[in-house]
């Protein structure tokens, strides 16, 4: 089954190459670089830090958007063109199809994350940049797994893309939302407030803390904590496993 997974994965990478994904990500990163240089010219103090902050945030956003949209749109096309029907009709376990797709898209995410790190390399270096790039790749793997799960579940681009965007925004802001909810300013302990507080806590349990991935502060100093990286790697593995299993759950129930 490993050989089948790798074959499907190789075809996903090949398709991405032929679809000129490299060109798209290059243009997106070039635009991010241009914007950050413009912002640097506007700042009169800490211009270097300002540029790095803008570039890392824009590069991360570009990488996440391009990856999620690519996964969702190519998978939707394969469903519409009956390519998936044809694939599952072969002597191939369904799990191999999903895992192969994930492996291919994850490899593509490695290239995208590395490209983002390369764009940042003239302005920030050392262990901080390596850790930033690595955690961005981990973040992209979670995005790939979520996109795959959504498109398998919803089949349509719009609902799948919307769900991925909502998931990403919520996963990045859940920590801040919890803090706001627990703030003493919100002193009204009404039933509705307690319910919202509880709901946020439950959501926090079910979501990965994406705000801990790809932090710009890593690019300012080299104090990259290896324990932190291990923790993020563990979170990624657990969450990707959960999403892939959920995707498999839906994929096995699909009738082609």
């Amino acid at each position: 089954m490993v050989a089948q997974i790798m074959t499907i994965g190789r075809f996903v990478v090949l398709e991405a190459w032929r679809a000129r994904m490299s060109g798209i990500i290059a243009v997106a990163l070039f635009l991010a670089l241009g914007t950050s240089l413009f912002v640097k010219e506007l700042a009169i103090t800490e211009s270097g830090r300002v540029q790095i902050a803008f570039l890392s945030a824009l590069a991360r956003l570009a990488a996440v958007c391009v990856t999620a949209l690519y996964v969702v749109s190519t998978m939707a096309r394969e469903f519409n063109d009956r390519v998936v029907d044809l694939t599952v009709s072969l002597e191939l376990p369904r799990a191999a199809v999903v895992l192969g797709k994930f492996v291919g898209y994850a490899a593509m995410a490695v290239v995208i994350g590395a490209a983002a790190g390369t764009v940042l390399s003239p302005f920030a270096g050392g262990a901080g940049l390596l850790v930033w790039t690595f955690t961005l790749i981990l973040e992209l793997w979670i995005v790939v797994a979520m996109s795959l799960f959504c498109i398998i579940t919803f089949n349509q681009v719009m609902p799948a893309a919307s769900f991925v965007v909502a998931f990403y925004a919520l996963a990045r802001s859940i920590g801040a939302l919890q803090l706001i909810s627990a703030s003493p300013l919100v002193a009204d302990q009404s039933l509705a407030h307690r319910f919202m507080d509880w709901t946020l806590d439950v959501l926090a349990y079910l979501l990965p803390n994406l705000d801990r991935f790809g932090q710009t502060v890593l690019l300012y100093d080299d104090h990259a904590h290896l324990a932190n990286i291990a923790s993020l790697l563990g979170q990624t593995l657990v969450y990707v496993l959960l999403l892939i299993c959920a995707a498999l759950f839906d994929f096995y129930r699909k009738n082609f």
């Binding site: 799990a95 496993l241 959960l242 959920a246 498999l248 759950f249 096995y252 129930r253």
Partner: peptide, 24 residues
């Protein structure tokens, strides 16, 4: 029929999903 029976899902997938959820 758009959905196949629950029985079509391999037990390993359900078990792994349960483990992943507990780990999360």
């Amino acid at each position: 029929n758009q959905q196949r029976s629950w029985r079509e899902i391999p037990g390993s997938v359900v078990t792994l999903m349960g483990i992943a959820l507990i780990l999360q």
